[in-house]
Design a protein around this nucleic acid. Structure first.
Lengths: 235, 235
DNA sequence: GTGACTCAAACGTCATACGTAAGTAACGTC
DNA sequence: GACGTTACTTACGTATGACGTTTGAGTCAC
């Protein structure tokens, strides 16, 4: 999978150099980055530096003050919901912690989303769910992890969209990133847990039958499994 | 309660002019804003316009392309988790929808956070919880809505922080905004629901006694109440 | 030691010039 | 007449020099 962060333009390139570095903790909170220093170090003009800094500022990663410079803010103030920040942290040394946070977030949101989906999903969305669940079953054996992942991601995306909540829907990308990361990093060799596969099928059923309670609690089981898996793989 | 969005600098001023306008739908998706037009209209230099545009771009509100201009993106692509975007939408005509989304998000996250808090809260956090819950009780009668709000916000902030999840913790500001908005907009005249007050006290108890199950389900009752309240006040 | 004052550092803003990609239309060929 | 190619024009992208403004720090007088 290619570079996610549209590196079009120098400012974007600078951003994808500074962002990861800051979120990785290479510049501890309080570090000051002078504009002309950055200019020189990255061989770009002030214009470019300033634009990149403005974006970092909007993410609360840094604060630009006169006579002082661009100072790195403490991690507690970062916009940890910014997709860009999430990606940077997933790619850095903070990955385990970020993965844990995200999985916990999933465990809170997805069950509720599934419950709503059971009430609001269109026939087409129900069909998609079933289709992807069956796709997961079909690809769950024999090291077809790539294809399995596609269905898994699509399944959760449909659930989140069908919830009718715009904010839940936007978490689709994040979930995709977590699932993709999991496949590529850790469980590359073992086939998916049959239990999990079965749960997805049953969630699709529950949604189709408009059984919100069941959809919610089954999805909760899925996310509990995800958390358990994380605990097993990363102490 | 002053202006939230640090209007320091022309670019910030421009941002807080364009952001609300776009999120309010004043520029329908596909609208193109040329740089020199903005320059002229807001009487600022190109530098300033570009910096503001870069930030809007990082929120996925607009897309800047050569030879075409700065085009407004469809709402489905906006970063609806960006605190800035949330604030803008809360201040605009999309407020009801945004409030509904946020309340639903609360109903997903806060119970889980409370469960975690019951396991992880420090003695000091437990004390704070109890203190604020009692504060709510004390101020829940006799039109002391201002003071009540302070305790309410603080209570939920402590829960979210005590969950030990950085992402949950960052939702404190959002919750604060929702609660504040509710007080200032709608229920200005009636005292808080005694039932809700009691629930807060019992959540504090449950956390103090490390009873995660109870903390979670009591908090779920609180959020259910919040959703119900929203349904009653806004059809 | 405290206060006001001065100074300079670094960002903030502006204006201008030139580079560059990408629609658009003109052009020519088939 | 339809289609592909070329050239042009437009609006953003980048670079640079100049000046304004804030503000931390050091200085000086009291």
């Amino acid at each position: 999978m290619g570079t996610r962060g549209q590196d079009r333009g120098l400012h974007a390139r600078l951003l994808s150099a500074l962002g990861p570095a800051i979120t990785a903790g290479e510049y501890p909170p309080g570090t000051v980055l002078r504009t002309d220093e950055l200019e020189e170090r990255f061989e770009v003009s002030r214009t470019v530096v300033r634009e990149a800094v403005r974006v970092l500022e909007s993410m609360h990663l840094v604060e630009s003050r006169r006579r002082v410079g661009v100072t790195v803010r403490p991690a507690e103030e970062w916009d940890v919901f910014d997709p860009q920040v999430i990606r940077w942290r997933l790619a850095g040394p903070d990955r385990p912690r970020q993965l844990r946070s995200l999985t916990r977030l999933r465990s809170a949101v997805e069950p509720v989303a599934a419950g709503l989906a059971a009430e609001l999903a269109t026939p087409e969305q129900c069909a998609d769910l079933t289709s992807h669940a069956l796709g997961m079953v079909a690809t769950s054996r024999g090291h077809q992890l790539e294809s399995y992942l596609v269905h898994d991601v699509a399944f959760h995306r449909v659930i989140l969209r069908a919830s009718g909540n715009e904010m839940f829907a936007r978490l689709g990308d994040v979930v995709a990133e977590v699932l993709t990361g999991r496949t590529q990093h850790q469980v590359m060799f073992s086939d998916p847990d049959p239990e999990a596969v079965s749960l997805h099928v049953r969630v699709a059923e529950a949604v189709r039958e408009r059984d919100a309670e069941r959809a919610e609690s089954l999805t909760r089981e899925i996310t509990v499994g995800a958390m358990r898996e994380l605990d097993v793989l990363a102490p």
